[in-house]
Simulated scan of single mutants.
Amino acid sequence: MREAIAIVLVTFILGVSLFSMYRFFIEKGGRSSDENIPPISNALMVWLALVIAGLVLLSFVALYGRRLNLDNNIGQIGDFVGGLINPVLSFLALLVLLRTTLIQTGEARKTTDFMRQQQTILESEKFEATFFQLLDRAEKYCEIYLRTKSDENGKAKSKADKACEDILARREEFAGKSVKGQLKLAKAHVNAALEHDVFMNFFFRAARVVNFVNNSTIPDDDKASYLGVFRETLLPPERILFSNYIFFNYRHMRLLLRKWGVNHLREHGYVAKVVYDYYDSEKD
């Protein structure tokens, strides 16, 4: 009887091992490459529990020197088997609990990452909505007050075109002055030509767009892209007026124009060479 029980137990252990290995590889092969692998496989846990139980019984059969009499020694057998298996099963239960905790931690991390991505998307959508709203207001203002052309001496010119001609008319005169002289004369000339409500309201709207993008939390590459859209929205005469007036009156804003290349003008688009040299110098 002892030999028969041993054979059955050995066969049981081998069968469980083969089946568990088969299930383990099935589970492993069924996972996608980007799926998180559980810390402990289900097949492995079943194999450990059954194999340990089989080994304990096999040890009992092999080490019990007397003839097996289950009817008279059932209590002792139960104490022996239970005393060996219970600690092992408790340890396996601890491993299962650890596995469950790790899986829950991973899922919580996924949820946190997902919420962070959702928050980023919402912030991006909110930024775009505000940006294009500010851009639309600035463009509509330009359409109404700066781009409307009137016939003057047989030539249709917009208000922005006329203002550009006015501030650039004395460019050659300023070129012969020193740097300090250019700054002093050009500033007085630009302010006299542009300090009117129509132009000031345009400057405020344009500066608000630049400040909004610069102060946002989006990456610098995205800031450059959005400000590129803003730059392309403005016509060359509007960029000339904006860049020249800002240079002489708003130090912080002129730094931003140079940093992001919002002006994007050639030398003949500035009232004096000193202004061109500033914008064309290496960006901060």
Rank of each mutant, 00 (worst) to 15 (best):
A4Q: 10
I7V: 13
V8F: 05
V10H: 01
L14A: 15
V16P: 01
S17Q: 10
S17Y: 09
L18Y: 08
F19S: 06
R23W: 13
F25R: 04
I26W: 06
I26R: 13
G30Q: 11
G30S: 15
S33M: 08
D34M: 07
E35S: 12
N36A: 15
P39M: 09
I40E: 06
A43V: 12
M45A: 12
A49L: 10
L50Y: 05
V56H: 07
L58T: 11
L63S: 10
N73F: 12
I74Y: 15
Q76S: 11
D79F: 11
G82M: 10
I85L: 14
L89A: 12
L102S: 13
I103R: 06
A108K: 14
R109K: 08
R109N: 14
K110Q: 13
T111I: 05
K126F: 04
K126N: 14
A129G: 08
T130N: 04
F132I: 02
L135V: 09
D136H: 12
R137M: 12
T148I: 12
N153F: 14
K159D: 06
C164S: 05
E165Q: 10
R170V: 05
E173W: 11
V179L: 07
L183W: 03
L185S: 11
A193Q: 07
L194Y: 01
E195G: 06
H196C: 08
D197G: 08
V198D: 00
F202L: 04
F203Q: 03
F203M: 10
F204P: 00
F204L: 07
R205T: 07
A206V: 13
A206N: 02
R208P: 01
V209P: 00
V210D: 01
F212A: 05
S216I: 12
D220S: 06
D221F: 12
K223E: 02
Y226V: 08
F230Q: 00
E232S: 00
T233K: 00
E238Q: 09
R239W: 00
I240C: 09
L241Q: 02
L241H: 05
Y245L: 02
H252M: 07
L256S: 11
R258H: 09
G261W: 03
L265C: 07
H268Q: 04
V271C: 12
K273R: 13
K273C: 07
Y278T: 13
S281T: 15
